[in-house]
């Protein structure tokens, strides 16, 4: 009995499957990392193996080049402020939409959902005009309002679903205790929906961090460029120094991964707080 249990706990099949996928993921990353230590041409001598001579200059020039730190700072500022606002506003709205059972509530819910279905690029001209009217062109401050607006439909969608799934008796108990709706939100809802907040944040993190389009049309000023926009100066009309691009983009993926790890730890916390459903 004990022996069979231990065997069950080894999960050999699961490990084999996941290790296979690990290989499918890590092989391209291996290619990415080794090639970022080559030169424009030596990448192609043997793209899948370590370089004959390690070329650290791709990284050192990037790190020495002060601009990339500015770009990095800008991206970080824009993304973090946008994420905080999206999760905050979307959780307030999601709470209201889950609890506010009326026609207006349903209409507003679908009004948000509709925003997921049209590519925002189409609205570029209008957004440019709005930003110019607000005097935000050529500054990174033009980006957060758009990112928050872009993130809200998905945020509202995910968070409303999560809050709706919370058991009704939770509220009943709280209301009997005399808690206001504000207190219910901050004391009961927020702690319970932490995994959903993390999901929303991670889901939006990627498009915010890797967005090129809006920085491209809004920002010319060197001091206000975002990381990905900064990278495009490595792209020529007819030739691109891919080894440098790979180096910069390898560096740029790291913060996203760190943020992901930080936020995904919320899932684990969420388990202890949130095993309420059944």
């Amino acid at each position: 009995m004990r022996g069979s249990l231990r065997k069950e706990n080894r999960h050999i099949f699961s490990h084999i499957v996941l290790l296979l996928w690990t290989f499918v993921v890590l092989f391209p990353i291996w290619v990415l990392v080794i090639n970022s230590f080559k030169t424009r041409l030596t990448i192609y001598e043997n793209p899948f193996w370590i370089p004959k001579t390690w070329e650290f200059s791709n990284y050192t020039t990037v790190l020495r080049d002060g601009d990339f730190f500015t770009y990095f700072k800008n991206s970080f500022f824009v993304v973090s402020i946008s994420l905080v606002l999206v999760t905050l506003l979307a959780s307030l709205a999601g709470y209201a939409l889950a609890r506010y059972k009326s026609r207006i509530g349903t209409i507003i819910y679908y009004f948000f959902i509709a925003g997921m279905m049209i590519p925002i690029k189409i609205a570029s001209i209008k957004l440019l005009e709005i930003m110019r009217a607000l005097g935000l062109l050529n500054t990174i401050y033009a980006l957060p309002p758009i990112y928050v607006a872009m993130g809200l439909p998905v945020g509202v969608f995910i968070l409303t679903t999560f809050i709706r799934e919370l058991p009704e008796d939770l509220y009943e108990a709280a209301i009997i205790d005399g808690a206001s709706s504000g207190k219910i939100y901050s004391m009961i809802i927020l702690p319970l929906i932490r995994p959903a907040l993390a999901t929303t944040a991670i889901y939006n993190l990627i498009p915010f961090w890797n967005d090129l389009w809006f920085p491209l049309i809004f920002i010319n000023d060197e001091r206000h460029k975002t990381l990905l926009l900064g990278v495009t100066r490595l792209f020529g009309q007819y030739q691109t120094d891919w080894s440098k691009v790979l180096a910069v983009l390898t560096l740029s993926a790291i913060p996203v991964l760190v943020l992901y790890l930080a936020m995904s730890s919320q899932f684990i916390k969420g388990v202890t707080a949130g095993s309420v459903k059944g």
Binding site: I125, L128, E129, R132, L137, L216, T232, R233, F235
Partner: peptide, 21 residues
């Protein structure tokens, strides 16, 4: 001198001209 990466030049220039920027 403020160049834009070539695949995006036409699209961005046009948008900026259309919106007066």
């Amino acid at each position: 001198f403020q160049p834009t990466n070539p695949p995006d030049y036409n699209a961005t220039l046009r948008l900026q001209l259309d919106s007066g920027t």
